[in-house]
Design a protein around this nucleic acid. Structure first.
Lengths: 113, 113
DNA sequence: TATATAATTAGGTAATCGTCTAATCGTTTT
DNA sequence: AAAACGATTAGACGATTACCTAATTATATA
């Protein structure tokens, strides 16, 4: 849940891909593992690392364990970091503006929340 | 310069600290190393990794090698990533708003560019 | 030109990371 | 209650990473 754990979690391409899978809808461990050319235990370990970092949450229902992203942690950590490190002024707000534009466009395309 | 290299670079606390040092003004390798309880060659290695990731640039002047942050890469990579992975809509723009507020406050405090 | 200083390269070692297979735990179904 | 299925834990292995010291390169200065 610390900044260190979050950056460590994001350092792996596999974990970033997992994160993208569970960003918009939950998915169980097996279905996630099926997307990778890797054993289930390995994926399980990546999932745990993501969970310890506070980036995903799991819920067991019957035989299955479902994973989904915890929405706010990532955005706030990364923007906080950028805030600290980047020369304040231009770049961040420029990105913010573009971000807002894209988000608005995406929302228009998919009106259902 | 790829996304992978950037996240890898950010995974180390030492490298994030270096990045913070060179964010707002350049600094030579020795002065950077003096801030850490670590040998100069080790810091040199971290600096090269940051440079290969495209996050800092170096310039040799006389005996010294000066490092400074490349300003836009980090912000655009991280916001691009957040854009991909986070549930679109609320969180990003909420952060953006807060970011803009803080940046404005900081600018008021230090009017010289 | 010889010496001193800044920085990097080279080479080596300990620790960590990512992966695998085999074994275990919990749940469901027959 | 036994068998099947989903997931995690345990243990082992190879590759990578992070660090160190010693040696080297490049520049400046006595």
């Amino acid at each position: 849940m610390s900044m260190q754990m979050i950056f460590e979690a994001l350092a792996s391409p596999v974990r970033r891909k997992i994160l993208a899978y569970v960003a918009h809808h939950e998915m169980n461990a097996g279905d996630i593992a099926a997307r990778f050319d890797m054993s289930k235990p390995s994926i399980s370990q990546h999932l745990q690392l993501l969970e310890h970092a506070g980036l995903v949450a799991s819920e067991k229902r019957g035989k299955f364990v479902y994973y989904k992203q915890v929405p706010d942690t990532l955005a706030s950590t990364l923007t906080g970091f950028v805030q600290d490190v980047c020369p304040i002024g231009g770049p961040i707000r420029r990105e913010s503006a573009e971000l807002a534009r894209k988000a608005k466009a995406a929302e228009a395309e998919k009106p259902a929340e």
